[in-house]
């Protein structure tokens, strides 16, 4: 017995539909990649600011702490809506994709920053004392001692988070961004089999996120192996 919905399969992949799927997959990839990259860079800076004990950096420490604690406690969708409607209220004429990119980057930054801060805190204070007595500057301590030791610890949770994060970018569909989930909605409203459509969406999410998970595994292995080979 051949289910009826399978007959719908070729219609899902007409030329125009392939273009739509492609654009949606690229948008999901863009949202994920920008979120991950900005999250890593800014999250790292915030984690350092939160770790600093320098008096001059106290305001930065408090602000970054507040930012991370608030953003992590608010649902993704609410943050996205706040940015979306906030931009309208403040008179910024931004495309939904731009707003989604900013919101996802902000969220990713908060989560990654917290993971990196945790990793940096596993470092024994005595090693930092040893570095200080040998006249390492704070930046040298960070580059030569703290980061190399924190990296193998934070890479697995960061990449674990990124895989979850890619799925969260689906919420960008709520502000009208054409990403994979939104593409799925459009296809079902066009009358295609919803089951088939979402099976395709599932496959495309897998294709987007699997390489990232593999990259995380590769980096994790490399960092551990390079220490003990």
């Amino acid at each position: 017995m051949s289910p009826d919905f399978l007959s719908d399969l070729p219609k899902l992949f007409t030329f125009y539909n392939i273009l739509l799927w492609g654009e949606a997959a690229l948008t999901t990839l863009l949202l994920s990649a920008v979120g991950c990259i900005i999250g890593m860079i800014v999250g790292f800076v915030l984690a350092i600011a939160r770790q600093s004990r320098r008096r001059a950096l106290i305001p930065a420490r408090i602000l970054s702490g507040l930012f991370v604690e608030i953003v992590r406690r608010v649902p993704f969708l609410i943050t996205l809506m706040l940015f979306f409607f906030g931009a309208q209220v403040l008179g910024f004429d931004l495309a939904p994709l731009t707003i989604a990119l900013i919101a996802t980057s902000v969220i990713s930054t908060a989560f990654v920053s917290e993971i990196i801060r945790g990793g940096l805190e596993t470092l024994k204070p005595a090693q930092l004392e040893a570095a200080a007595v040998m006249n390492f500057t704070p930046l040298q301590t960070l580059r030569l001692v703290s980061i190399p030791q924190a990296l193998p610890i934070v890479i697995p949770p960061i990449f674990g988070y990124f895989v979850l994060f890619i799925k969260d970018t689906a919420l960008a569909s709520q502000v009208g961004v054409l990403e994979l989930t939104q593409a799925g909605k459009i296809m079902t409203t066009k009358g295609h089999s919803a089951f088939l459509v979402y099976a395709v969406v599932l496959a495309l999410y897998f294709i987007v996120s699997y390489p990232l998970a593999r990259l995380g595994g590769y980096l994790e292995n490399r960092l551990v192996l390079s220490r003990h080979s």
Binding site: A130, Q149, R227
Partner: peptide, 13 residues
Amino acid sequence: LAIVFQQYNLFGN
């Protein structure tokens, strides 16, 4: 100066 600590404090990386 240089100091040797009770817990060695070598850099693990």
